[in-house]
Simulated scan of single mutants.
Amino acid sequence: MERLWTPAWIVRHVAMVVLVAGCLGMGWWQVTRAAGGNAISFGYAIEWPVFAGFVIFVWWREVRQALRATDPAPPAGPAPSVTAGAEPVAATPAVRRPVRVVRAPAVPADGADDAELAAYNRYLSWLNANPGARPGDYPG
């Protein structure tokens, strides 16, 4: 539990208490306004305690995550025995990197190039070759 008493965690604890007290105070203020005849304040009187509950929920999740992250790992179970003729099973990584595949541009099915597409590709090539140019400067 001493890991939850670092300066950063003390700031989080204090922020949680201040936010919850502020939300509950605002909720009580809205209740008094609603009792005074302001009908819309009934909705706000319900919202503010929900906000306080959300602050407590997020704080509790962060505390649990911090406690889990620094707990020692559980001891590993016994190693699986390798029997004769059994192939070793490779461990699959939990997160895999994406595979980049180089794709060739698709060729039209009938073999004829699209003239409009070719003109657009020339325009893009010109823009790439002239980085400071504006589209209106294109000579073609």
Results as ranks from 00 to 15, higher is better:
M1H: 10
M1I: 04
E2W: 10
E2K: 11
L4P: 09
W5L: 15
W5C: 12
T6L: 09
P7A: 08
P7T: 02
A8W: 00
W9L: 09
W9P: 11
I10A: 14
V11K: 09
V11Y: 09
V11M: 08
V11E: 10
V11H: 05
V14N: 08
M16F: 10
M16Q: 13
V17N: 04
V17Y: 01
V18E: 10
V18C: 05
L19Y: 13
L19N: 12
L19D: 11
L19I: 01
L19F: 12
V20P: 05
A21P: 05
C23G: 10
L24G: 02
L24Y: 12
M26F: 14
G27C: 02
W28N: 00
W29G: 00
V31E: 01
T32H: 00
T32W: 00
T32Y: 00
A34G: 07
A35R: 07
A35L: 13
G36T: 05
G36C: 02
G36R: 04
G36S: 05
G37F: 03
N38Y: 08
N38P: 04
N38M: 12
I40Q: 14
S41V: 07
S41Y: 14
G43R: 03
Y44W: 08
Y44R: 09
I46Q: 03
I46V: 08
I46E: 02
E47W: 03
E47C: 00
E47A: 04
P49R: 03
F51H: 10
F51N: 07
A52F: 12
A52W: 14
G53H: 07
F54A: 13
F54C: 09
I56R: 07
I56A: 15
F57Y: 10
F57K: 02
W60E: 03
R61Q: 03
R61H: 06
E62M: 09
Q65Y: 07
Q65T: 11
A66I: 02
A66R: 10
L67K: 06
A69E: 11
A69V: 01
A69F: 05
A69I: 02
D71T: 14
P72F: 05
P74D: 01
P74G: 02
P74S: 02
P75G: 02
P75A: 05
A76M: 04
G77A: 04
A79V: 13
A79I: 12
P80F: 14
P80W: 13
P80G: 05
S81R: 11
S81Y: 06
V82M: 13
T83D: 11
A86Y: 01
E87V: 00
P88K: 04
P88Q: 06
V89A: 14
V89S: 11
T92I: 12
V95I: 15
R96E: 12
P98A: 15
P98L: 15
V99A: 14
V99Y: 01
R100D: 13
V101R: 09
V102A: 13
A104G: 06
A104D: 08
V107Y: 04
P108V: 06
A109F: 00
A109D: 06
A112Y: 14
D113R: 03
A115L: 04
E116C: 02
E116W: 01
A118N: 03
A118T: 12
Y120N: 14
Y120R: 15
R122H: 08
Y123T: 06
Y123Q: 11
S125C: 11
S125T: 09
W126S: 14
L127R: 15
L127H: 12
A129N: 11
N130W: 00
G132K: 03
G132Y: 00
P135K: 12
P135F: 00
G136K: 10
D137R: 03
Y138V: 15
P139D: 08
P139L: 07
